[in-house]
Design a protein around this nucleic acid. Structure first.
Lengths: 133, 133
DNA sequence: CTAAAACTTGACGTCGACGTCAAGGGCAAG
DNA sequence: CTTGCCCTTGACGTCGACGTCAAGTTTTAG
């Protein structure tokens, strides 16, 4: 398939696909006239790339680890990077979940203007002087 | 405390603190000469802001929801935004975890060059022609 | 008093993953 | 042949959360 079809099938822009190629994370065949041609597997490839981007990996990092995904084995440097990114992702998950819980508390409070309804407001460690006015 | 101490206690730059103030998400008293003065509670405030940034919220969004965090109640628009961000965070957690699992697989494969060791390689839906060479 | 450290506002720089516009080439249908 | 759509490379624009430098003021230490 050509770039337009890949773009619509993977739900990205053609600009993004050319950018991926420029970054060395997506390869393409070329027709004699120079147009890019991709195999069907490219769709899933692009989705994987998108997922890695969404996980906070940079183009450079993705370029380093994609060969490992394919071959199943990694040089020392790549393995180090893999572990580092894995750790970063785990930490990010924790941060996100904690932020999510904080938002949950605010949402719950906002949904219940009832002054008698206090989910875990009392667990707040600071501020005793709330209702002085 | 002044801006430098807050910066070191909250582990951010003074530039960031001034930027937060400019975005309306961090307030400060001023000395007669114009220097910023913060209460101790500002440290935790800044950490909360940082956590929201880390969770992918923009300055604008943080500015919208911080009052809700303080007052415990939200206008319709703010509540909508709270729920939207909460949903986005939940989705992001899922994406991150899936990316993490994919990295785990690659790491596990790379750590065991043993050809007999195949953790869940066989569960891959595609590619049967692996060991032809 | 004086030098150093910390503070002020203002303004330009950065970085990455693209968006967008320009100017042209390739190709099937009528 | 020409219309129209898809494709090409090149190059500049964007956006957000700051970094960084400049030039001047205030506070602190000795």
């Amino acid at each position: 398939m050509r770039i337009g079809e890949l773009a619509s099938r993977a739900n990205v822009s053609t600009r993004a696909l050319r950018y991926y190629e420029q970054q060395g994370i997506l390869v393409s065949e070329r027709t004699p006239s120079g147009q890019r041609v991709y195999p069907d597997s490219a769709v899933e490839r692009v989705r994987l790339i998108q997922q890695f981007y969404a996980a906070g990996l940079s183009s450079r990092t993705i370029a380093m680890i994609l060969p490992c995904v394919d071959t199943g084995h990694a040089q020392a440097e790549a393995l180090e990077r893999l572990r580092a990114e894995r750790a970063r992702i785990a930490a990010a998950v924790g941060e996100l979940q904690e932020a999510g819980r904080k938002l949950d508390r605010v949402i719950e409070l906002a949904e219940h203007p009832d002054p008698a309804y206090c989910p875990s407001l009392r667990e707040q460690p600071a501020e005793r002087q709330t209702a002085s006015v």
